[in-house]
Design a protein around this nucleic acid. Structure first.
Lengths: 67, 67
DNA sequence: TCAAAAAGTAAAGTTAACTTTACATTAATC
DNA sequence: GATTAATGTAAAGTTAACTTTACTTTTTGA
């Protein structure tokens, strides 16, 4: 599962710390999400999407590339 | 957070066990999700939505009722 | 109405999301 | 090129998602 958090964050001129504080999660959580270390909970996914005025499906890309 | 899993499942004439098997989770997970005992991971939320040809936002209702 | 299928409860265990801390690397700026 | 902000790594700890098992209650239909 991929996501566009990093691009969206930069588009909004935010640092990882600022985003983490807004979402009330740790900076480590943002780093790990952006780097694809783990998948967010549905609640965090929703909060991130809402913050950037996107749907969950617009921020998180579930489909595997076709083989 | 609310969800429409129970209605969607019944609309598709499935038992909890059938849905659990299709999603490759335990029956207990389906029961707990339908009863709102806990929130699904984003991956499970996606799989459920996809199964019913819905978006995550159509199956899972995040907004609180207005007060 | 009784037997079986479906749905539900409870509780202990595992795993993965998320935190916390501490330190290393990269980018930006003076 | 030294300093500082921003980003990244690592690792141990907590919490919540999910599993497993075992048993109870409700629904269904022969």
């Amino acid at each position: 599962m991929k996501n566009n958090i990093s691009q969206l964050r930069k588009k909004h001129s935010m640092t990882q710390k600022e985003l983490a504080d807004l979402l009330k999660v740790s900076r480590q959580t943002i780093i790990s999400l952006e780097r694809g270390k783990y998948n967010p909970s549905i609640l965090l996914a929703y909060q991130i999407s809402k913050l950037f005025n996107k749907t969950i499906e617009e921020v998180f890309v579930f489909e595997e590339e076709s083989n």
